[in-house]
Amino acid sequence: MKTSVIVFPGTNRERDVADVLAAVTGSPAQIVWHGDSEVPQSDLIVLPGGFSFGDYLRCGAMAAHSPIMRDVVAKAKAGVPVLGICNGFQILCETGLLPGILQRNASLKFICKDVWLKVENTQTQYTRRYNQGEVARMICAHGDGNYFADPSTLDRLEGDGRVVFRYCDPKGNVTAEANANGAQRNIAGIADPTGRILGMMPHPENAAEPMLGSVDGRKLFESLLAA
């Protein structure tokens, strides 16, 4: 399985995700610079976390219009799975591949802590190794993770099962207290209608080794192999 990780100026989690991809797939990830015009042949494209272009204007807005993204959007539309983590999720929203936007955290504070996610949909390419309703412990590190979309978009996402992860407490209760950033309906991750494009704020790549305190994120990458 060939994977590509896109790097923008200000991206900072590309090595974390490349490490996990190499460990899970057995071959090194291809690192692709934002100024390139084409992503090499890939079975998965990852937009990693960080602060692309210094979060200028809006998080992900500049990256969404960089040269490589034209090809990422084209490949995504042609069926190549695309995973956006944290800043990558923000970029996917800015390109329009996923609906809505990530706003400033309701607390106005940068959040860096463990969070618990309820797996709401196990039919996507990224969640087949999870059980329905399973609680996965991952790590949050963001200032703008407060998911917003208009009510009709939210209803459509819910109705189509496109809400993949929700913030919950360690027992799996989806509560206001467990909502890390004020996201509407506790949304931590959403997919496109095909389940091939996933955007999520927490970092599964930072919850993929026992040394990191959780291995719950590793299954997300292993799910991609379980065709």
Partner: peptide, 9 residues
């Protein structure tokens, strides 16, 4: 429409 504003919000 294309860059300066995000018309979602």
């Amino acid at each position: 429409r294309e860059l300066l504003a995000n018309t979602v919000i």
